[in-house]
Design a protein around this nucleic acid. Structure first.
Lengths: 331, 331
DNA sequence: GTGAAAGCGCTAACAC
DNA sequence: GTGTTAGCGCTTTCAC
């Protein structure tokens, strides 16, 4: 059997209270006994049970992360950065891919609650707002990453989507494009709305008309982007540039262009969003708006853990600034 | 406060034992009381504490997954498939990116043990074999995915790497190539060795000489592949085809080729391994050896959970067959 | 400085 | 069918 605190206590000739104290560094223990206890712990290869300690009201040292799909490179990178920071704090990360499916979201949240995770980070797209409100009501520490719910008073870390949309579009108008289409993954997402707002603002600034027909809604897959792009590119008056609201869509656009015999960037300019590994792999490499994924991960985790530890008084919204990474897909 | 089993019992006018029985479907309970208890549970929004139940010797319903890097698309896809199957069984997945760093591996394993996870799945590359042996000795259910350690008697699910290496190389020899280089990510990995063996076998079969200078060792990054490829391609007698042991490396090879002014597949043929999303995104699309990631994930999880539940008598090695996916990068 | 003991929320004998 | 009770491994008062 795994050794317990009793085994250690017996072997060291002390009480379990004493052992507990040296484990947690609480109370006052003489150096001699501390040393002895430590030795026994090592000798027995004793690992305190987080389960038991959690039952007495302490942390479980685990955090849940809700994302749409771990296999999506953007979210995999987000997850990795969150995981890293959790690990630095001694926490583990439970990953939950919801596929934006409300049922799965509810299931996962329920499971996480039963496990008494210390907190939950949400990066999911279309979430049942009520689910999250419930979490808040139940005082379960919650934080949002790469996603905004203005009506929810929780710590949030995201990129300035308006600025991102502006930067991308402004780059295109600066290049002289007059007909610029935008493809978003979902009109209900705050981030999509903001990116469109940025797009509009850049158009206005360039004295270009805003044409609703050039605002396309797709999903978050390469196929979706391809399908959408094919459709606009075959219109009578096709756009000369497309701003795709994530890299996956942008790649779909590139593929559509190739299939239609268009060259990039000569015949069509493309700008993406996210700056995932994919952006550097396509040819030409994708000009895209970079989200500071590392920083975002680090900051949500820090905020959440502060909240878990009760070290925080006010909640925060951290808005990081995106940057345009110019590569070869727009001209 | 969160409702406990006591709250439910009181509200339903029964003992906690009764409540426990209806939760677990054990013992005999009259329909009437079962119904009443269920109603109270719903009314109170009662969620049984997995923590408390784990302390009494039951499962924690969580599994740990050790991988090198979650941000690597191949491992992200593996993780996703493992996660899905875990979820179907009602388990959660704790992700641990080790960067193949022995220190991190040890830390993560220790954390997972303290949390009393029910089992651990390892997909990590260079692992301290002793660490895993220890796990086995401590009777912690363990399984390997996409990775082989013949000296370890644990459930293992992987692809036939010899066959994979053979298929890739055979495709190239069939195309008429005489000088074929191979880039592996790590010579210590069983999978690398096997792929090289398959490569050799295909060469022999085609009556081609095996030239050690054409066996290159890199890492698992695009940069690594690029660097390696640049180096061979600038030799006096460059290869006309390169078999890269994963898609990331293959993409590095493609980039190296472009930078050297070589066209793919006209001037250089490239075959990858893994068939990740990346393979479909590059131009031309990558001819690669597909690992059945979905099946692999499903099978390790099933094996591990059988072991956890003690439903199993013998351990298994499941070897799945890879398939060559012919696309445009080899000719 | 150290220990005895209550309690965290649940399960599983065992009694009734 | 249902309830009593003894743990599970740990933390935390509170005595000494």
């Amino acid at each position: 059997m795994k050794p317990t605190i009793y085994d250690v206590a017996r072997e060291a000739g002390v009480s379990i209270a004493t052992v507990s104290k040296v484990i947690n560094g609480t109370g006052r223990i003489s150096d001699a006994t501390r040393k002895r206890v430590l030795e026994v712990m090592k000798k027995l290869d004793y690992q305190p049970s987080v389960v038991a300690s959690a039952l007495t009201g302490k942390s479980t040292y685990t955090i849940g992360l809700l994302i749409p799909d771990l296999a999506n490179p953007f979210f995999a990178e987000i997850a990795r950065s969150v995981e890293d920071r959790c690990h630095e704090h001694g926490f583990n990360l439970v990953i939950c891919s919801t596929d934006n499916n409300p049922e799965k979201e509810a299931q996962y949240i329920s499971l996480l609650k039963q496990k008494r995770v210390d907190g939950i980070i949400v990066a999911t797209g279309i979430n049942d707002e009520a689910l999250l409100k419930n979490l808040v009501k139940q005082k379960i520490p919650l934080a949002l990453i790469a996603r905004d719910m203005p009506a929810l008073a929780v710590d949030t870390v995201l990129v300035d989507d308006f600025l991102g949309g502006y930067l991308a579009t402004n780059h295109l108008t600066g290049l002289g494009h007059k007909r610029i289409a935008i493809i978003v993954e979902n009109l209900n997402l705050m981030s999509s709305k903001e990116r469109i707002r940025g797009y509009r603002y850049a158009l206005e600034e360039a004295k270009l008309p805003y044409d609703e027909d050039l605002v396309l809604v797709s999903d978050f897959t390469v196929e979706g982007g391809k399908h959408c792009a094919k459709q606009v590119l075959q219109r009578e008056q096709p756009p000369t540039a497309i701003f795709a609201c994530n890299d996956l869509l942008a790649i779909g656009v590139m593929q559509a262009a190739y299939e239609l015999g268009l060259r990039i960037p000569q015949d069509l300019s493309v700008v993406g969003f996210d700056n995932t590994i994919l952006a550097t792999i396509v040819d030409p490499q994708l000009t895209t708006v970079a989200q500071p994924i590392q920083d975002m991960g680090r900051q949500v985790v820090d905020l959440l853990i502060q909240e878990i530890k009760g070290e925080k008084t006010v909640r925060q919204r951290v808005v990081l600034l995106p940057e345009l990474v110019v590569r070869g897909s727009a001209k």
